[in-house]
Amino acid sequence: MRPLFSIELVPKDPIWKLAIASKMVEKAGFDGIWVSEHFFNRSSLVSLSAIALHTKKVVIGPAVLNPYTMPPLLIAQAAASLWELAPHRVRVAVGAGDEMALRRLGIERVRPVETVMRAVAEIKHALSTKGVLNTYRADDIKVLVGAQGPRMLDASTSVADGVLVNWSDREMLEKTLIRLKSRTTEKFWKAAYLIISVHEDAAKARKTAVPFAAYLMAGASPEYLSKIGLEEDFRRRVVEILDKGDWESLYRVSDGEWVDRFCVWGKPAKLEELVEALVEKGYDEVVFAGPLGPRFLYALKEISLICRRVKKVVGKV
């Protein structure tokens, strides 16, 4: 069934908007919807219940649920219950989450790789073992891991059904794919989870991209920041600006190329070239996440056209 093309919806918006958006996503011909999970937003699982009831074909799931805030057995139970609203259409992704957000909740992110892998194993066991959740028939739910670093990626290959690769940097996406291909079989699902912002006016696309890129940069590993030439002082400054919600200052410090490492922004043609390359190289799925663009309907239409053209090109190869 590859490649799949999915859209991420963010429950920072009210559930009624997500319900409308999900119907639009399905009508535009996309294959899947991931709903992001962030404790300070609305619940992804409750949002997905509404989405399940307003869609018929798209595969749906939360990305990513966090075992530090939700016990794995509850994740399994919620996934199985969601399956009843959307039979054979549910996937689940688990990840270690945003360290800064966890700290705000008073939770220390101890041993993230081990914690996530244990959670994946428990969820898969609960979903597949007779006598655990067998009031449901949800035995086809795939469990994926939201991953970025090499340890999380490597560990996922032996426990999970696939990974959502959280990079928007082309070089890192390609390196990750090579790493995954050397450790997995064809069956292991590899999804590129891209933060994007498209618009006919590239400057407007960039303006919309900046806050998303800044949040991602704030949570990036010191190794990656050093690789792209950003100092720890700069990160601290951006974190302070984000904490104050001072968008004018944020735009003033965001004129560098670092924004390009965390978000694919610009005219649709730029995105098309990247998507085609990722699919040709072997990604099974491309997830379009983040703001999508300053104009939602315009972005959705342009992305769906890109996906159709890429499917045609890949189908011919």
């Binding site: 958006a21 639009m24 104009r295 939602f296 309907l297």
Partner: peptide, 8 residues
Amino acid sequence: ALLEVLMS
């Protein structure tokens, strides 16, 4: 046009 305004 209004739906675009709302959804964006």
